[in-house]
Design a protein around this nucleic acid. Structure first.
Length: 736
DNA sequence: TGGGAGTGCTTTTTT
DNA sequence: AGCACTCCCA
């Protein structure tokens, strides 16, 4: 039976074939593969690698494959391993950050880093900045730490050190000074942050000629996934590495660029074409994933963007089912709808793990989770609170970090008085002052204390020293288990009322360490002689999501960002309300709005067969009820692709309506809580209807309370805000 | 010093 | 709503 069918799945189409077998020449021919959603991008990448290897064009160690997320790197490794005759172990496959980390560990001396240097995650980084400002005595009113964090990272991502920052006034000079002080602090403590990994690795290679030559000559083929997400520094890093004549094979889709907010520059794709001598551009436009209606909707939507390289997806597949649209009164109802449908789909034979519920922001998951849980439908949430970011995990890691590197002040402060050992704020202030005087770490400054504080802090220093001695030579999981016990974390959480789950997580940490130590990275670290630092690095770079529950049969809940690169039989895109998706922050900015639209494009193209779009009239967010009109994206989708499960919103707001300044996601005036929601209200009006008011102009009815003559309605008038009006007096007219 | 109550801020997205 | 942070009392 199967032998008769031409196996479209294993054969490549013509452009794919051209990409995979792009000739290997000298000087090199580079490839820029513009690969639309669902056009077989990952397959082209992995097949290209297999092709290079099996035809003898390259040895495994001559290949470098870079991705942006750990998930993508794992995926690529798995798919390569599945291709016969390819042993993925010799290859360097990883994220930009992971590879730079690896490079820096190997050459920490040349990079001017201590052997056991650590990586601050964004929370740690913010804490470090706050601490720094305190030491410097800088008011955080003048310089909000978050802003500084962004300032520092943005500059690092452009490859700019503190001494290269352009300043023009007092504030910018101040920021540059703090940046410089932050660099010095990190250097003294032996820590890096995410952006530092890239910048440091770039500097290492650009300054150290023999090393640069070594890697330039080693990597003959550099393959890049999701190239549209590269920031300036990452692009420069590639350019540097490829400078010795390596062939670059970059795959990307400008329509799926959704990380401009953190520095990704789609412009890199144009620069690449210009700056690399011989670049072949190949477009992959045939979509193998989605049914016709879904693809048509995606195409129509993205056409509203102006800044595009131009590309239109097409498919052989039939139109398939229409996209179902559902309007709910509130977020709970939306969640109930999703769960109902998920169950129905399961009865039709779609596996739960093949269903995804997507949302714009993590905060939206709560209502959904609640409903899934209450109805006993298996689900799994990605993102949100990551494993390695949990409080108890960070506490345990802080002790481990101190064992590896006692100068890590961030870790010191996180561990020193937890569990409580009588080292309070006062002692710590003294300690920090001492450290500053001595220009030394807190750990080193403990000797400068006197009195009771000296005893307590000295005890802590001794504890760290003891832990180091007691665990040295032990296998990693046992080291961690010992630290958890001996540092008092286990005891502390045993006594805490909801400490059970935390203890379980700590066990999970030991587990994760065992897995790490047994895996390839662990083996590599073993050889390099630094298992603990390597594991700590891994913990910083890896969110730890795949640790538990991977591959379980459950409905997948995640943000749209997290869904990029994945595909599902059935997809629910929820919270399609103006102000939420697209998000408020993006509305005034045309470029940001285009990014929101690309995000929506990514969301739509995740679906193979079935797609649901849903929105609510009001939603509980940040503890407040907010009201909204349907997302403007509804007006950008072809009506013939949509099937409204609730009353069709024919009165779609047109462009002029939005321009009129309706800001539909504004905070409401207080709801009259005591009054029941209106069951119905007179005058031919209803919820969601566009109306006109003599004084306030156009608006949308977003809520109604009371009955009969007492009926009051909340109308969102955009700039004028939300007003509660008594229907009997307000003289509202329906408007289209 | 440490815990409990009170206050204000968050949340867009992630390595 | 939840969380971090501050303030106040045992």
């Amino acid at each position: 039976m199967t032998a008769e069918t031409p196996s479209a799945k294993t054969d490549l189409n013509a452009p794919q074939q051209r990409a995979v077998s792009l000739p290997v020449t000298r000087p090199p021919t580079h490839g820029l593969i513009l690969a639309g959603a669902g056009s077989g991008k990952t397959r082209v990448l992995t097949t290209r690698i297999a092709w290079l290897l099996s035809n003898g064009w390259a040895r495994p160690d001559e290949i470098l494959a870079v991705t942006f997320t750990n998930k993508a790197a794992r995926e690529m490794t798995t798919r390569l391993a599945a291709q016969a005759a390819v042993n993925p172990h010799g290859l360097w496959i990883g994220t930009f950050h992971g590879l730079c980390h690896r490079l820096l560990r190997l050459h920490h001396r040349d990079a001017n880093l201590p052997r056991a240097f650590q990586i601050l995650d964004s929370t740690d980084q913010l804490a470090a900045i706050r601490r720094l400002m305190k030491t410097l005595g800088i008011d955080d009113e003048d310089y909000p730490p978050r802003e500084l964090q962004h300032f520092i990272n943005a500059h690092k991502e452009k490859g700019v050190r503190a001494d290269g920052v352009e300043t023009w006034d007092r504030i910018s000079r101040g920021k540059a000074e703090i940046y410089a002080a932050y660099e010095a602090q990190c250097q003294r403590e032996g820590v890096t942050d995410f952006a530092e990994l890239l910048l440091r690795a770039h500097e290492l290679l650009s300054r150290h000629e023999p090393l640069r030559r070594h890697y330039q000559e080693r990597f003959r083929h550099i393959l890049v996934d999701e190239f549209q997400d590269a920031n300036r520094l990452q692009y420069d890093w590639l350019k540097l590495l490829a400078g010795g004549g390596a062939a670059v094979f970059a795959v990307g889709d400008d329509d799926q660029s959704i990380y401009a907010f953190r520095g990704a520059e789609v412009g890199n794709m144009r620069d690449f074409e210009r700056e690399f001598a011989d670049v072949r551009v190949i477009r992959l436009e045939q979509n193998y994933r989605s049914h016709g209606h879904i693809l048509a909707a995606a195409n129509a939507l993205i056409q509203h963007n102006r800044e595009r390289l131009g590309k239109e997806l097409w498919t052989d597949a039939s139109e398939g089912e229409p996209i179902r649209v559902y309007e709910a009164a509130r977020d709970q109802d939306e969640a109930a709808f999703v769960v109902d449908e998920a169950r129905a789909l399961a009865r039709e034979g779609i596996r739960q793990s093949q269903m995804a519920v997507l949302y714009r922001a993590n905060a939206q998951s709560r209502a959904l989770e609640h409903e899934f849980f209450a109805r006993g439908v298996a689900y799994r949430v990605y993102g949100g609170l990551r494993f390695f970011e949990r409080q108890e995990i960070k506490r345990a890691l802080a002790y481990l970090r101190l064992i590896a590197n006692p100068d890590d002040d961030t870790a010191f402060l996180y561990a020193v008085n937890f569990p409580a050992r009588g080292i309070g704020a006062r002692s710590l202030e003294n300690l920090q002052a001492g450290a500053r005087r001595m220009n030394a770490s807190l750990h080193a400054a403990v000797a400068s204390l006197s009195g009771k504080a000296a005893v307590a802090a000295g005890g802590f220093v001794r504890l760290i020293e003891d832990l180091r001695l007691e665990t040295s030579g032990l296998p990693l999981p046992e080291q961690i288990a010992h630290v958890i016990e001996r540092a008092g974390l286990a005891g502390h959480y045993q006594n805490e009322k909801d400490g059970r789950e935390r203890l379980e997580n700590l066990d999970e940490l030991i587990n994760a360490a065992a897995v790490f130590a047994g895996g390839e990275e662990g083996r590599r670290a073993e050889e390099a002689g630094g298992m603990l630092p390597a594991f700590l690095g891994y913990a910083s770079l890896e969110s730890g999501e795949h640790q538990a529950g991977e591959g379980e049969e459950a409905v997948q809940l995640m943000t749209v960002h997290a869904a990029k690169g994945l595909e599902f039989d059935a997809v629910f895109i929820t919270g399609l309300e103006q102000g939420l998706f697209p998000h408020d922050n993006a509305l005034p900015d045309a470029r940001a709005l285009e990014e929101e639209r690309r995000l929506m494009y990514v969301a739509i193209t995740r679906a193979r067969r079935r797609l649901y779009l849903s929105f609510t009239q009001n939603r509980m967010l940040h503890g407040q009820v907010r009201y909204a009109a349907p997302s403007q994206f509804f007006a950008e989708l072809p009506p013939e692709c949509l099937k409204w499960l609730t009353r069709a919103r024919t009165a779609r707001p047109d462009a002029a309506f939005w321009r009129a300044g309706l800001a539909p996601f504004q905070r409401s005036a207080a709801i009259p809580e005591s009054v029941e929601p209106a069951p119905e209200f007179p005058g031919g009006l209803e919820l969601g209807m566009n109306v006109r008011h003599a004084k306030f102009g156009f608006g949308v009815i977003v809520d109604a309370r009371g009955s009969g003559e007492e009926t009051r309605v909340a109308v969102n008038f955009g700039n004028a805000g939300i007003k509660w009006l008594t229907l009997a007096y307000a003289q509202l007219e329906p408007a289209s």
